[in-house]
Write a protein that binds this DNA or RNA. Structure first.
Lengths: 208, 208
DNA sequence: CCGCATCCTCATGGATACTG
DNA sequence: CAGTATCCATGAGGATGCGG
């Protein structure tokens, strides 16, 4: 897939799994590791060259791994740990699809194994809540604010309300901090971030 | 997008939002409703004809609505309620993208407004748990079982373990039940489902 | 058979120019 | 500003070939 050239998690995800058939291949491998022929069977409509291409792409990008299983040279495809984490976005899309599914199968093909993903996805829909504060974010443009409420986090332009603290840093670092890929302690030690106001609130956010 | 011809929630979702640029357009509209020019600016790299095409597609499929805002004929694009529910799968993909983001922006373009989605998505990652039982599913092929544990639901081939109850029905109905689009009471009144064993367990699943 | 690679045709995407 | 029209490049899909 041609790159979007955008420093955005969604765009970069789609560069890996956004190509036609890719997520459906992942779906099959979430159900179970499979051989080439199993995938052809579980993906009615796919062309053989496309399946081969996509498996190569997904292997290169670290989503799929090709294994030689058992005796002889029996090739089997499976998800890497990172690839298996696509279960969550896929379940989420399955939940979103409900209005598209209730009209029934029409002439579409159907494999009961697909329910292995769909039913848990539809049942598993409850989330948790959190405390409440507002932090200012300065990442090189107009000031933003990060608010935590019971129903989740929200980022938007600073609306003038009192800030419990402020954080000044770069886009890559704030994402790494939010993802836990970078600790607040390390970021400060390396001078990657400046903190103002109530530092304990910032720790609540980025060092839970 | 050409149809996949599969009665699978993921496949049907992708027929609506799987085309190149579609989810990025939704991303922009999740940040805020926008005019055509705003979208061009927020989607660096998109061609004008593609944006026009995609907006039409998304409008037809009920994801986007075109509004005439304020005075004069100022066209504005916004998400429908269903379209706005794409926030969850998008946030999920953003979380998945973390390994792709920590290397930094390289030469990619960047808009701070994108953080409006990314930061809450990365912070909001905790889920809830549930009781524990096993139900058999007969939906027209080999028997399946649905297990609930503390960490979530799981569907797989029946492994011979004791079932608390069994449910016999069609694919479309089990999905509608799991999604809450059909109540257990209605399904039974209409003869769409047969229940065996401990009926109260089935109610726990499909009528919570 | 299985696991692909090649070839061919046609639909789609991308860049740019253009118009109401 | 808000899109269309045009033209070319790329990619999808189907058929088929071919070595192990």
């Amino acid at each position: 897939m041609r790159s979007y050239g955008q420093y955005c998690g969604l765009a970069r995800s789609l560069e890996v799994v956004g190509d036609r058939w890719n997520l459906l291949i992942v779906r099959q491998l979430l159900i179970a590791p499979a051989r080439y022929r199993d995938l052809i069977d579980g993906l009615p409509g796919i062309a053989t060259n496309l399946l081969a291409d996509r498996l190569r792409d997904l292997e290169v990008s670290g989503v799929v791994e090709r294994r030689l299983t058992g005796e002889g040279s029996v090739v089997e495809y499976a998800l890497t740990p990172w690839g298996a984490e696509l279960r969550l976005p896929i379940e989420s899309l399955i939940r979103w699809s409900t209005p598209l599914m209730v009209r029934g199968p029409d002439d579409d093909s159907f494999r009961p194994e697909w329910l292995t993903l769909a039913v848990p996805a539809l049942l598993d829909t409850r989330f948790e809540a959190r405390p409440s504060w507002t932090v200012g974010l300065e990442i090189g443009g107009p000031p933003f604010q990060l608010r935590a409420t019971r129903s989740g986090f929200k980022v938007g332009p600073h609306d003038g309300r009192d800030l419990d603290a402020t954080v000044r840093t770069d886009p890559a670092y704030i994402l790494a901090l939010a993802a836990g890929a970078l600790t607040l302690r390390d970021a400060r030690a390396l001078g990657l971030v400046e903190i103002g106001g109530d530092e304990s609130v910032v720790r609540t956010v980025f060092a839970p």
